[in-house]
């Protein structure tokens, strides 16, 4: 095995890693916001809204990520009449996908907030919106930290799938290097190690946040 090929192409691979991290950061932000919003709708008191959110969540959770990406990148443009770049399509697809999972986590986080607190909030004259953002949401999110970070690590791994629709993130870059140099074993091993380091680091951050901010029960 000769890892010189990795050193030779290091700038290109690092650029790919940059794209991977940037995608992940965007999607973590967008996905969390979208997911929590979807979760709020999913638990709202208006039946129609609740059912629409439920149908969306179930449909996404039953569909592979790759199919969601294909639908956004290839399927939607003829319908909405706008063509995304591969990068835009992958970010949108990831947000749509991971949002459904985060919404479900939000629901179980919310269920763990005692009902008495909501009633107490309403009884003391807060509006429904105030109870949501000052009482239930902060507690639900703190309880969600472990599952949320599981989703983030999953998402970070999932960004590799963007290479299939032509985004040159880490996996895409590694495959391009391999196509030129054909030293698959060295390149794939390097790829695996890079993902491991990044994902493991992210999960450590999650564990640290959890010990620091989680609600002790």
């Amino acid at each position: 095995m000769n890892f010189a090929v990795v050193w030779r192409n290091l700038p290109y691979l690092l650029q790919g890693l940059g794209v991977t991290l940037q995608t992940a950061a965007l999607v973590i932000l967008g996905g969390t916001v979208f997911g929590v919003a979807l979760g709020v709708v999913r638990t709202s008191r208006i039946p129609l809204l609740r059912q629409v959110a439920f149908a969306y969540i179930e449909a996404i959770r039953g569909t592979p990520l790759l199919v969601v990406l294909f639908v956004v990148y290839f399927g939607l443009p003829p319908i909405i009449g706008y063509k995304f770049t591969a990068y835009q399509a992958s970010v949108i697809g990831f947000i749509l996908f991971i949002g459904a999972y985060i919404a479900e986590d939000y629901r179980s986080g919310l269920a763990s907030v005692p009902r008495g607190q909501i009633e107490a909030g309403l009884a003391s004259g807060l509006t429904v919106g105030q109870v949501l953002c000052c009482i239930t949401l902060p507690q639900a999110i703190r309880r969600m930290i472990p599952t949320l970070f599981n989703q983030f690590v999953r998402l970070l791994k999932f960004t590799s799938v963007a290479s299939v629709i032509g985004v040159t993130e880490l996996t895409g870059a590694a495959l391009a290097v391999n196509a030129r140099e054909f030293q698959p074993l060295e390149i794939i091993l390097t790829l695996a190690v890079s993902y491991f380091v990044v994902c493991y680091a992210l999960s450590l951050v999650g564990r640290w946040l959890n010990t620091r901010y989680a609600i002790q029960t």
């Binding site: 690590v153 791994k157 590799s160 698959p184 794939i188 993902y195």
Partner: peptide
């Protein structure tokens, strides 16, 4: 768990293409 499935697949398919 910390390596994407796609990379697992490429490992067997490309990495060990021999």
């Amino acid at each position: 768990r910390n390596i994407p499935l796609l990379v697992h697949m490429y490992f067997w398919y490309l990495g060990l293409s021999a």
